[in-house]
């Protein structure tokens, strides 16, 4: 009886021990991520870091012949809900001079069209603008609106094609093919850093399967604990046009008020946010 009890105790102990080991091991065990999970984590790291963010952005639009045009803006973002959820964007333009003081606001919704407003200072007017085409160029650059604020995960079929090193960093290589014909590319390959989940490179292929556009993350810095792409470029191989983007300043969790995203502040942006 005593023996049995000891045996029973031993048996229970064994069961608990095994269960504990399994439970404790779970977080550390590298179950392979699905392609969707990689893309989700990448979006979180790329478009949703922090509760909010602020960046002073310098865009250089460079033509094939080398002629440069400059767009300089402050971009403020606030998240509403979890990663992949609603966001609001507020942009204030410093350059070029003909759009100085222009502001632009986006309410971004998952799985439906965004709301967009533009403030035109010369006639002191705030207007909604039609925003159906997500693949439209952002201010004439090689980046699209989706490149700036992200694309719905459900809009593409994602597959993990391989895992390889890029610039000595382990990467997932994800192929994303749009389910609908709503963008210019047939599919996109993304090299997503396993450490930071930031995209280090993206290749865009046209309907003939030819590579025509390349994104590269050229500098990554740590800002308040968030790895941030501070230099990036998009090159259009067929037109020879390219856009280089530098985050002159970046910050996170700065307490942007909900009221910022309003007609009042589109017309008169608070100085503290655009300095």
């Amino acid at each position: 009886m005593k023996n049995f009890e000891i045996q029973g105790l031993n048996f229970k102990f064994l069961v608990v021990y095994v269960l504990c080991s399994v439970l404790c091991a779970l977080p550390f065990k590298a179950f392979p991520l699905t392609a969707e999970e990689v893309v989700k984590k990448s979006q979180e790291a790329f478009f949703y870091q922090g509760k909010d963010s602020k960046a002073r952005v310098l865009m250089k639009l460079i033509s094939k012949s080398g002629q440069e045009r400059v767009r300089e803006l402050t971009m403020l973002r606030k998240n509403y809900g979890a990663s992949g959820g609603e966001q609001k964007y507020f942009m204030y333009f410093y350059q070029p001079v003909d759009v100085k003081d222009m502001t632009f606001m986006v309410y971004k919704y998952p799985a439906k069209d965004d709301d967009r407003w533009l403030f035109v200072p010369a006639i002191n007017m705030v207007r909604r603008i039609a925003a159906q085409d997500k693949s439209s160029s952002f201010v004439g650059s090689d980046f699209t609106y989706e490149d700036v604020s992200g694309r719905d995960i459900e809009d593409d079929n994602h597959t993990l094609t391989k895992e390889e090193k890029l610039d000595a960093k382990d990467c997932y290589v994800i192929k994303s093919a749009p389910k609908a014909q709503d963008v210019d590319y047939a599919y996109k390959l993304s090299w997503i850093d396993k450490g930071t989940f930031l995209p280090l490179k993206e290749e865009y292929y046209d309907k003939k399967g030819e590579l025509y556009k390349v994104f590269s993350a050229d500098e990554i810095k740590d800002v308040k604990g968030f790895p941030t792409i501070t230099k990036r470029a998009m090159k259009n191989l067929s037109s020879g046009h390219r856009t280089e983007v530098t985050y002159v300043k970046a910050d996170y969790n700065i307490g942007i008020e909900d009221s910022l995203f309003s007609e009042r502040f589109l017309k008169q942006p608070p100085k503290k946010w655009i300095e």
């Binding site: 159906q132 693949s135 439209s136």
Partner: peptide, 10 residues
């Protein structure tokens, strides 16, 4: 009524 029909055409 305003609508974007294709890229950069409204």
């Amino acid at each position: 009524y305003q609508r974007q029909l294709w890229e950069d055409f409204t």
